[in-house]
Amino acid sequence: MYSTPITRLRPTAFIIAIDRSGSMAEPITFNGERMAKSEAVALVANNLIDELINRARREEGVADYYDLAVVGYSGDGVELLLDAGEGFVKPSQLIVRDVPCRKLIRERRLPDGRAVMAVTEHNMWIAPKAAGITPMYDALRRVVTLTENWCRRNTNRTSYPPTVFHITDGEASDCDESQIRDIASRIRNKGTEDGHTLLFNIHLGASDDETRQHVIFPSSPEELPDRKYARLLYDISSALPQRYEPLVAEMKTAAVQPPFRGMGYNASIADLVAMMNIGSVTSSLI
């Protein structure tokens, strides 16, 4: 289980579901820079997409080792942010697009101590947005459809199952807890012969307040703060297969025992980066 090599003929799938509700306009500090949560999340998601494309680069060009989809949800509804049609795009389709580029200018210290202003360019595959309510249920229903359609394709029958990253900073405004549990269960029940879809739920902290307890990749409910929503996220997130365990164990400072849940509560943007890096470890199966 969770061991099928990822090849051009047996790609895997990554789906990113992003909360773009109004609360995502709240400022947060990322990499020393103050920005809206929506901007930081867009940056992280765009960096992940870039990295997945980079990892697929071979001598002869970019290999289609994955199908990628991004679902955004806001007061304007649920949108497919990479492809409005089927939802999934391949790396070879992305690299021929004209994509806007964002330049980030940061002060950095060179190894010899000198300070320089470093400019890095980042492809903006998706744009940040923060508007209105949180139709999380509708968005996750779209994710169900995406995973179901992907898993049903004969060519994907034996592939490594899809990985879903769900990034939010709050609770749904279009459903209750039981509906969230149900829809998340439906996502996790989709899969291939190599295993079920892996659902990561990452809740972003409300502020930079480091006194608030943040939890990532818990191995038991006892690690969670006494919050109903934290428990909900724990329950609806996938237990991670063995191949993720060494990476999770390495990032957690306390002695911990697997299995770990693919969830974060009150996560920082740096936590988000780390979690998505670990969640995309499947690219080592290429």
Binding site: R55, L110, V119
Partner: peptide, 22 residues
């Protein structure tokens, strides 16, 4: 510290000044 991503190596190679020891 986690290993760099390919994107992060690319950023160094775009601006190699002072970034290589030898």
């Amino acid at each position: 510290m986690r290993m760099p991503s390919i994107s992060e190596y690319l950023h160094t190679l775009e601006h190699p000044f002072g970034m290589f020891r030898t």
